[in-house]
Structure formats: C-alpha cells, structure tokens
C-alpha cells in the first residue's frame, strides 16, 4: 500500500509508538501516568480534528462523547458485570450512534450557531444524567474494586488500560491520516473551505458532515469507558466537563488544525506544559506560576490564536515545500 510509505503516516505513528513504549522501558508509575494523559489527549484531539480541522465545524462540547461512552461502558461493567473490552466497544458505539442522531439535527447549523448548539448539548446531557437515578444521579457511580481482580489486580489493570489507550491513540492517528488522504476527507475539506460551493460541485455535505461527526465521536466514546474504568468512579461533573472540551480545542489549535501531526504535538506540548506549570515554583508578580497556571495557559492560547492561528505544524508546512511533503 502506498500510504505506508508516506512519511506523513509513519512519522506520527512512530512518534506515538515510541511515546507509548517509553514508560514500559523506564517502568516508572509517574512517567506512565503522564504519558497516559498524553496518549488519551492524542486520541481525543485527533478525533476532534476530523470534525474541527478537516470539516471546519467548531465543536465546543465534543467531550460529551467521552462522557457518554464513559457512562455507557461504566454502566455495563459496574451494573451488568461486562468485561472491559466489549464494554468499551459498546461505549464507542453508543457515542457514535448518539453523534449520528445529534449530527443529523445540529449539523445544519453553521459557524457560531453550531458551536453554541454543541455547548447546549453538552450541558443538556450533563443535566440529564444528573436526573438519571440508574446512572447514580448527581453523585455518579463507583466501581467495586473487586472488579480489578479479573484484570490481574489494580496494578496490572493500570497497564492493561494504558496499552488499550495507546492502541486507540494509534488507531486515531491512523484514521486521521487515512481520512485526510481519502476522497471522503477531500469532501470534508471542501466543506470547510466553502460549503455551498462544495455542494454545487456535488459534495453531499449533510451526509459527509454526519459521517465526520460520527467518526469523531466513536474513539472518544471508547476512551471514555477506558478512562473512567481506570478512575473507578464516574460522575456528571467529570464526564461532561466543558473545560476539558476546550482544552482539546487548544491542543488541536496549538499543533495545527487540519493536520495529522498537529493534534499529537499539541496534545504532548499542552499536557507537558500543564504538568510543568502545576509543579513550577517560579513566581510572577508575586503570584506563583502554579497558582495561576490557568492564566498562563490562557495567555499562551491567546498568543497562538493571534499570531500563529494555523498552529505549529501548519506554520511549518507553510514555511517550506519539503516540510509540506513530509508532514501531513
């Protein structure tokens, strides 16, 4: 296959593989947790990128699919006693199906209206789950830790989930590349540039957008199950966190929306930066950086939006023809 020889595919894949293997080599729990967060973010950001970067639709509430998948999978494991793997797959399927239904409705909206609708859906879903007693209402659900025994105890379980998340991150990157270089992806990018002109050229925008929305929701749904299984608890506030949604947007923007490598780079840089800000002792105007990490992150975001809106990879691609060929 031609795709395998393309540096645009193997560069990001190799990066993710090396990243994922690193904690296994060092065998330090703290490294594994940091990398876990990066891999999770890569999976989520790359998925979001299909909608945001390729299709040009700004989903402010994309984390809703992470939360929905999380709740679905958690319920199957906790209440019905399912195994993690099938539960996670169902989590993805639930997220994808709901995305299809929602997408058919809200993808008719454009620009700011779509962005607002996604926020509304996230908040509506959160408020709805709070009222669902079978999902634990406002306090959510908690796993019986005995469950972890089936996975070789808590210590082994952490590794199992880690490898599962790493695998999903790889799939997300692979998917992201293949969509970008497919006819389907070309249609999405045409929609991003000028939806009406794309339709005049024959792109069935409504259908393409719905597929993109579903594709961008499935992996977050699976990741939701994996993440909350590892946490052992799930509650509405942590499953449907608007702030996390926006962090994903920041990652995609930071690395470069519409590129394959961008969300990977963005996820890595953002997570590392967050950790280093949180543990920093440096003070700025008498305020410790760690106390104002949110403000520092905000300032960084502002600088990116104002000065390099195409993100790091987008910027590099625009600089040289060689990089344009090598980086996707």
């Amino acid at each position: 296959m031609k795709a395998w020889r393309s540096p645009g595919l193997w560069i990001p894949l190799v990066i993710v593989v090396i990243l994922a293997a690193y904690p296994a080599l060092t065998d330090k729990a703290s490294t594994r947790e940091t990398v876990f967060n990066v891999l999770l973010a890569i999976g989520l950001a790359s998925s979001l990128n299909i909608l945001l970067g390729y299709t040009g639709y700004v989903s402010f509430g994309h984390i809703v699919f992470f939360g929905l998948g999380g709740y679905a999978g958690f319920y199957l494991i906790d209440v019905l006693g399912w195994n993690l793997l099938p539960a996670a797959l169902v989590g993805g399927a639930v997220a994808g199906s709901i995305a299809l239904l929602l997408g058919l409705a809200i993808l008719r909206l454009r620009g700011a209206y779509f962005a607002l609708a996604t926020i509304g859906i996230l908040e509506a879903m959160k408020a709805l789950v709070i009222n669902m007693d079978f999902l634990g209402g406002p306090t959510g659900m908690e796993l019986n830790f005995q469950v972890y025994k089936d996975y070789g105890g808590a210590g082994q379980m952490l590794w199992t989930v880690y490898w599962a998340v790493a695998a999903i991150a790889l799939i997300a990157v692979f998917l992201s590349f293949n969509v970008k270089l497919s006819k389907f992806g070309l249609g999405l990018m045409a929609i991003r540039e000028d939806e009406d002109a794309a339709e005049v050229m024959g792109v069935v925008a409504q259908r393409a957008k719905a597929y993109a929305y579903v594709l961008s929701a499935i992996l977050p749904g699976i990741l939701g199950t994996l993440f909350f299984f590892k946490q052992g608890v799930i509650e509405p506030g942590s499953a449907f966190r608007l702030h996390m949604s926006i962090e994903l947007l920041v990652m995609v923007m930071l690395g470069g929306a519409g590129t394959v490598l961008g969300p990977i780079l963005g996820a890595g840089v953002y997570q590392v930066l967050r950790v280093s800000l949180l543990t920093s002792d440096v003070a700025l105007l008498g305020l410790r950086i760690r106390d104002i990490q949110l403000a520092v992150a905000g300032l960084l975001l502002l600088l990116i939006v104002l000065f390099i809106p195409s993100g790091a990879i987008g910027w590099l691609r625009s600089r040289s023809n060689v990089l344009r060929r090598v980086l996707e």
């Binding site: 497919s182 006819k183 070309l186 249609g187 990018m189 045409a190 991003r192 540039e193 000028d194 009406d196 002109a197 794309a198 005049v200 050229m201 024959g202 792109v203 069935v204 519409g258």
Partner: peptide, 30 residues
C-alpha cells in the same frame, strides 16, 4: 462557475479540481 470566484483557498489548485472530478457526474475515485 461563479461570477465571484469561490476557490477552496487552503486546498491546492489540484485538490480543487480533484473535488470537481470526485463529486461530479461520475463520482470518480480519488
């Protein structure tokens, strides 16, 4: 064609035309 041109700005010239061929009458493969 449009009186006020509507190029898909961020896509290459070639990609613009490929869109035309992919989604037009025949719906060609890439």
């Amino acid at each position: 064609t449009h009186q006020i041109v509507r190029p898909l700005n961020e896509l290459t010239v070639r990609q613009n035309t490929v869109v035309g061929a992919c989604f037009g009458r025949h719906g060609h493969t890439l």
